[in-house]
Amino acid sequence: MKSIVDFRVKEVSPCGDRAVLLRLSAPGAMPECVPGQFVQVRVDGSRDTFLRRPISIHWADTAAGELWLLVQLVGEGTRRLGQLRAGDSLNLVMPLGNGFSGLDALRAAAAAAGVSEPKPLLVGGGVGVAPLYYYGAWLKARGVEPTFLLGARSKGLLLQLEAFEAVGRVFVTTEDGSLGERGFVTQHSVLQRERFTGIHVCGPAPMMKAVASYAGAEGIACEVSLENMMACGLGACLCCVEKTVRGNVCVCKEGPVFNINELTWN
């Protein structure tokens, strides 16, 4: 069930060159959520940060009432979020949208690929890595080993590498070659060496389109998490639509995770 919850900020820590990790704790019971879902954060409702900001869940422990958000400082709203301090209150509407594929879908994709165990590849670009940490940890806790392929323009924009390494194998690309292989995620050599049963992507649109194109050509099941601009986050305002084979649908309600076969990218 969706709720409006006032979280308390436990810690704000810098992350890479221009992002922060917000660790939040729920005052009471925290709503159940799954990897791939997002929250709508009330910044302060002031003149320039009027609407809520949709931010994907970086990690959550419902029982412990703990929620992490990874926030890239790109505009006035996220800049204000970066200025939060321990003890501050943060108003969230959550959980919103639908998550990444569950175990049944992963096993079905593995079976379709002719192997017994799922071997998912989680591909992230920039701050788009945020929901993949939650998803990877969730998979690992259920006996599925995730592999991460993370890309950014340069080393300083690669976020949470150590956290990802604690959860699964991590492969890295940077456009300037400052860490990992030089180039885009779609050029990483691991894609030549290994065969994955499913690809789960979150990042900038050009990157997601390139990965979706690769997955389509290779016949690998692929889902992407979109971040269209939205106002309500509830499927009411119809602002965040994406064209699909079913017509325009709300990313906030029907997504944010979509199987690439539903989209009209190709």
Partner: peptide, 23 residues
């Protein structure tokens, strides 16, 4: 009606613009 193309929304000072177009 399919409505207008994305983007349909822009945040403005103390408000927002929308052009959903009756989807």
């Amino acid at each position: 009606r399919e409505g207008n193309d994305y983007p349909r929304m822009a945040e403005t000072p103390s408000g927002m613009l929308n052009c959903v177009g009756l989807q």
